[in-house]
Design a protein around this nucleic acid. Structure first.
Lengths: 232, 232
DNA sequence: ACAAAAGTGTTCTTATTACACCCATGT
DNA sequence: ACATGGGTGTAATAAGAACACTTTTGT
């Protein structure tokens, strides 16, 4: 029976701990991810995720929100932990454990004010080599997003508050890398009855303007769907 | 531009890192989890997950496999990372980050030889308070399992190699906490065509014996299903 | 003979797919 | 007038849900 938990914990080996944010945005009908250039000479020119060490007494989620806030100036952004990455050799400076977070935001709701390290949006589809194991982390988070967006209303975080059905469909098509039937797509969302018709139209489009909608987060929260279906 | 990654990493704050395994089994038509009694006096009498520190230069997955091997004597057990838990106050001895793993094994394929700390199977449904944040970890892993078992053939890891359709259905009913229609359940698995009829029958049952099946892992691996369906 | 679970089909309902035409707007 | 995407319905198909009786074995 151990009476001195502090002594026990002090005897444990310790490792540096960071969070890395995979911040997705949507622009020009492409899924983008916010990246910087690595400032390690070993990864000179390579792209890197936005990350930071986790501070003493800081919640993991809070560390990730802090990174997000520092880099984008935005609060209240969708953020969820995906998983930890901890291969002993993932960092050239020695072992560093990182906890990866997936974040979704509307690119046009903020401007990148801090352009340190060449902070820019990059198309996910065309990402090549990255620093550390960051390409693997992006791949895992992208797969996570593809799955999640089919089962939860995450996608709306990537769009403006008001959006047209076309924009919504473009979002799904880009993320899932498929083409969807327009009528069936609209029927599907109509049957869910989670879009609010705000009685506004698109402006300044070079064609017939579409209606604009908002997502009914209130109604969604109340609808505790519980369904069971075995399928693999 | 940083030329000395080692110096950089050494400047990072460090925290102790552990893995905790939520080891599920299935017995008497109940989902069970393998637990010990905590050996911290602060949690005297409380139940605890099986965990250990992650060694220097050890992969996270390997650390989890090691815990599993040490406690159950089994190799080749299903194991998957769920997520990291890192609240600053989750351990009374100071901050400890843990990475939670979910593991599935057939209870009857091994005997618990090492009964240190009162190692035993406990019914998941009746778990009360636990040491640390381990109840939360079990809850998260259980929810993870409920979701995963509907989309991937994980459940077979909890059953013997040869099993009857009744056993399979009992497993799904226990984990998902629902009752399923027997005919529809059988039809579903028949249509998947992933069960191998091994032409054997149950033995020593006090009723009409059922046929025994194996799961066709080979065929499953080859069937790269790719479907898209928005539903939330 | 009885208890207990195995095995098996059909109908109904619901969700998914495939598909083509006219409409409103800007240039 | 033309180009561009908005908006809409129906028929066919597939998947899921509901439901009852006969069979086989052990006691």
């Amino acid at each position: 029976m151990i009476r001195d938990p502090k002594g026990l914990v002090e005897s444990y080996p310790k490792v540096p701990l960071t969070v890395d944010c995979v911040i997705f945005g949507f622009e020009e009908n492409k899924l983008k991810v916010l990246l910087i250039k690595s400032d390690l000479e070993a990864f000179s020119g390579k792209l890197s995720l936005l990350g930071d060490i986790v501070k003493h007494n800081e919640e993991l989620d809070d560390a990730a929100y802090r990174v997000l806030k520092e880099r984008t100036g935005m609060n209240d952004v969708f953020l969820e932990q995906v998983r930890a990455f901890g291969s002993p050799n993932r960092h050239p400076g020695g072992r560093v454990i990182t906890v990866a977070y997936c974040s979704l935001l509307n690119i046009h709701h903020h401007e990148l004010k801090i352009h340190d390290n060449d902070l820019h949006w990059h198309s996910v589809a065309s990402l090549k080599e990255m620093a550390f194991d960051h390409k693997e982390i992006v791949d895992v988070c992208y797969a996570w997003l593809q799955k999640r967006i089919q089962e939860h209303p995450l996608g709306f975080n990537l769009l403006p508050d008001k959006f047209s059905l076309r924009e919504l469909q473009n979002l799904y098509e880009a993320i899932l890398n498929v083409t969807l039937d327009r009528r069936n797509f609209r029927k599907k969302f109509a049957s869910m009855d989670l879009l609010i018709d705000i009685d506004e139209m698109e402006q300044d489009v070079p064609h017939r303007p579409g209606k604009l909608y908002k997502f009914n987060f209130e109604k969604y929260k109340k609808s505790k769907r519980k369904w069971v279906g075995i399928d693999f």
